[in-house]
Design a protein around this nucleic acid. Structure first.
Lengths: 335, 335
DNA sequence: TATTTTATTGAAAGCGGTTTCATTTATTTG
DNA sequence: CAAATAAATGAAACCGCTTTCAATAAAATA
């Protein structure tokens, strides 16, 4: 690989000048600029990004830490991030946190050590305090899908409470009053918010919250299966089920089917997130849209604005969920 | 951030020695080693990875280029790669190629420019020649799910032909003789191999290949829908359908259902890849297992062995697919 | 035309490490 | 105990680029 020295030698100018040409500095005559560009082309020269980083104290890389790399949700998120970042000439260094505090901290430190300029974090296990502390550090970061009052400027999230509310309100509007709920792990902020919304909708319709109709699961298919099995075993009456995410909804649907419960005629089900495969379930899943792409893009804009001072983007910190009505919820005529 | 100079000053030894301690070089006395470690701890010193890269000409980062970042398939792949790489202290820089030759080349160059030490490529659009050329370059790379004779040492893949064969053979063994096939884009090597396997299975059972029962699609859900619609419109008789991947199979199942065709009683369907959600479809999809995690891990081992000379791993270049029997294929009694 | 200004350029000093080579100190060996 | 050998350390060069600062050349002003 050719270095700047060789370009300098071949073009007959100092490397300072070569550097200037390469970085579009003002005050370089057309003539020398041309000489340099010719040499660059002839030598197939490409600046060494490491050396450049060392000199500028900028790595042009942003670290992305997500709970998991697989799963329908994160894929869309990473895609959006990668496209936008690359278009800006930056790149993504990724790491997974696995929803475990130690592992998440480990991941964050790993990324910092790799001299990322900024971070995009989708973490749930790590404490608010840790993140608040991190914000006093020099490395800027955005938090996806998590709201912490003290550093709210760094948060880009969905209004999960509203999403939970909308989902249950939708069921209520369809005539349901006995609504079971499968939640995510309650120590996770988003899971907590979603169920709060659920309760608000119930309260608003004067429906008492029945703890028997709540099952705390894991946001995974397995949890949905377990939840539905639990409700069936409980012999509680319910005509609808709200799930805190689509994966659990698909698990619940599966178990319902195995137990001869028809969806939606015997039991309506609503999910949350609107991941791609909800459309291919049978029946197609009614759910709450989580505009993850938009949120991910906004996170990148935040980075571009705050770290790379690119343009003065408008940052929208909170996104609103909406209902995606499909087939898994049915109108229940009042008796 | 503290630098090596400060550690040197505080511990009272030269930075050469500090560097030695940090890199576990032999011939450093216990006493100085201790002094240095104390200073390191006191200053919360962490070596600057950029400077280190510049000096060693190693970035400890490997570039990962995949067609897409989303989709069930790539998620599993990235997860496996990230975990293994991080455990080895390396990191992944990711980029997407979007199954477009220009974009893939762009991505590869982007990664090279970012001074990755090695690359893991999952590309389909770029030509064999380009990759063969690249192999003469200095940057080592592994190719996932693609076999090119000239650089077969760099290829880690599934025996797609065998997979295609097994799928159709399985259908035939279940008594089917009128088998429709929805393939991926035929210019893609894996799609081509899979259908070759299909044809081999047909030939072996003395079934004539019927071009009317072939539909070339896009490996996406949409393609599966289109394929099934096409076959229905054609009014061709078929009792089973093999799809070149699971996403298309799910699309086909959906359209079948919408047209009152019962799966598997009216039509058996088999997929390919065994992505996570196949289990949650209704009926559960019978498919061909693509051990993507194992393949991804093997790719990392390849990199560790060939670029970082870690251990002398055994490299397995070709993996074998197996049938995962679930509910979507039914035995067809011969009349 | 002499004097300022301004536009171009180059030399050299970093950026924060690693590594070679020479030197000093500690150990062995004869 | 002197000489030879091995172990431990430091000085300085280097990795490839950016950037400050000073010097030179060109253009503008008086």
């Amino acid at each position: 690989m050719a270095t700047i020295y060789e370009v300098s030698a071949l073009s007959g100018v100092s490397k300072s000048t070569v550097s200037r040409v390469l970085n579009d500095h003002a005050n370089v005559s057309e003539k020398t600029k041309q000489k340099v560009m010719d040499a660059v082309k002839q030598l197939h020269y490409r600046p060494n990004s490491t050396a450049r980083s060392l000199a500028t104290n900028r790595s042009n890389s942003v670290g992305v830490l997500v709970s998991e790399l697989h799963g329908p949700f994160y894929g869309d998120m990473l895609t959006a991030i990668e496209i936008k970042l690359r278009a800006a000439g930056k790149h993504a260094i990724i790491a997974a946190g696995h929803s475990d505090a130690a592992s998440e901290i480990d991941g964050i430190e790993f990324l910092i050590e790799r001299s990322c300029d900024a971070l995009i974090l989708h973490v749930d296990a790590v404490s608010d305090e840790y993140l608040i502390g991190l914000s006093k550090n020099s490395i800027p970061f955005v938090l996806i899908n998590r709201y912490i009052e003290e550093i709210k400027e760094n948060c880009i999230c969905l209004d999960n409470e509203l999403g939970g509310y909308l989902a249950s309100k939708y069921l209520i509007d369809q005539g349901h009053r006995d609504i079971a709920y499968i939640s995510g792990p309650l120590w996770k902020k988003d899971a907590g918010d979603r169920i709060s919304g659920h309760k608000r909708a119930l309260a608003e319709a004067n429906i008492d919250f029945n703890a028997q109709l709540l099952f705390e699961a894991d946001f995974k298919v397995k949890g949905g299966c377990d939840g539905m099995s639990y409700f069936i075993a409980q012999k509680q009456k319910f005509t609808a089920l709200a799930c805190a995410n689509d994966e659990m909804a698909s698990g619940a649907m599966k178990v319902a089917r195995e137990n001869g419960i028809k969806v939606p005629s015997d039991c309506s089900i609503i999910g949350f997130d609107n991941v791609f495969f909800t459309e291919y379930l049978y029946p197609q899943l009614t759910t709450v849209n989580f505009p993850i792409k938009e949120i991910a893009l906004m996170a990148v804009r935040w980075i571009l604005k705050n770290e790379y001072k690119t343009k003065d983007f408008n940052i929208n910190n909170v996104f609103e969920p909406t209902i995606i009505a499909r087939e898994s919820v049915q109108y229940l005529p009042s008796k």
